[in-house]
Design a protein around this nucleic acid. Sequence first.
RNA 1: CGGGGCGUAGCGCAGUUUGGUUAGCGCGCACGGUUUGGGUCCGUGAGGCCGUCGGUUCAAAUCCGACCGCCCCGACCA
Length: 477
Amino acid sequence: MADFLTPQNEDFSKWYNEIVQKADLADYSPVRGCMVIKPYGYTLWERIRDELDRRFKATGHVNAYFPLFIPMSFLEKEAEHVEGFSPELAVVTHGGGEELAEPLVVRPTSETIIGYMYAKWVQSYRDLPLLINQWANVVRWELRTRLFLRTTEFLWQEGHTAHATQAEAFEETLRMLSVYTDFAVNEAAIPVLPGRKSESEKFAGAVTSYTIEAMMKDGKALQSATSHFLGQNFAKAFDIKFLDENNAQQFAWTTSWGLSTRMVGAVVMTHGDDQGLVLPPRLAPVQVVIVPIWRKDEERATVLEAARALRQCLQDVCRVHLDDRDTFSAGWKFNDWEMRGVPLRLELGPRDVANGTVMAARRDQPGREGKTLLSLVDLETTVPVLLATIQQAIYQKALAFRDSHIHDVRSYDELKEVVETGFARAWWAGSREDEARIKEETKATIRCIPLDQPGGSGTCVFTGREASEVAIFGRAY
RNA sequence: CGGGGCGUAGCGCAGUUUGGUUAGCGCGCACGGUUUGGGUCCGUGAGGCCGUCGGUUCAAAUCCGACCGCCCCGACCA
């Protein structure tokens, strides 16, 4: 049917590039590695942003804004941090026609400038905790870019908190990881594996990094959000000190956590099919589209009138759009809205108007099987129920797919085979060097050491040593 | 940064090997009609510095050189 789109099993990568553009999510910009987020894609991002922001506020955080430019010297204050980020910095050397005394870095992340400010703001334990988030753009000079998944400039939120005790900061790190998990599961309908990053995958400057890892439809992993326990590393680098109850100087304990426009790519690659996007109702810019159908002009008038009434009836309970363009046929519109991933389509024709019905077509169930004839009466209650059903259904589908592509492996050979198509779960007690070798030989990395552990101990899949933890291996975006 | 592919109308491409009238095709776009319950059909029309610069030639989309850009595969990353 859809020769408009390369089938996923033919070339998943090509499918992704095509659908992102054809569904009007984004377009390539004249600047290498950068993208233009189009209104439809941006609305999706706004939905993501609003749902996260609500959760941040609910957990006591407030928003603020820190500058785009960071003095170069700031980055250099934390050794691991500068080492990790220097290869991908964009640096401003001139301003107003003059060479700058000190180059300014375009922020790749804001730990340093926020650390600097926190040092000024924190004097006493009474000033803590400091729980600030910012919505911003950041720039990382990537060698290889892909729309949403890795662009030179991207949008994200970065939370930065400072605490009086290690325990409190640690608790915050895990709390925000669970906020991300909750968002991924309940809003994006994406099952994720929350876990700890291995030494070699952790954030530059962190003590411990946590992540939620999702599986895309090609079996590859996408790191969808991260939460870092920074210990006192940045507090020491930027002198974030306070007097405790006993009038003793202490360094603060800090955290940072972020989720980016990459999440849009995660939604696309988790739910999309050969007809196009499949958006979870909770995030979809348009949840319900009404497609009126008519043959003659008299029909057009009555059908459109009924369609407008239908929109009126639904607009308080969902995000509804009436496609009343008369330049396209009904069939064309069906395909068009399917490509855009609208969860529910209501087809309203002369027969329906006469019978007081409407044909509902679920995006997650293509073709006839997804069609049900609904009564126009009570639609304002049946439609939200149907949307919730769809939300659940696509989550369950993604969950079933992921779980059937995760395998417990006992040998390195098995691991090699499994990561070709999904994730391998294995006992692990290896070193950074062991991990590097596995990556070289299999292209797979430790995606995370899941928080959810089986307990007990086993034999490390690579070294054969006794291991107390299992790790998830997979190829990643 | 290494390997591969590609730059011709808004999009997708043919033409380039073997230089030669006015550079084509499909989709899209505009207008008219027809159609509309799964991407209607017909007609008319608009739209091009053939990626850029330089060279060879009577003559270059076509041959040569340099540069720029994009996509894919690797090394680095949310």
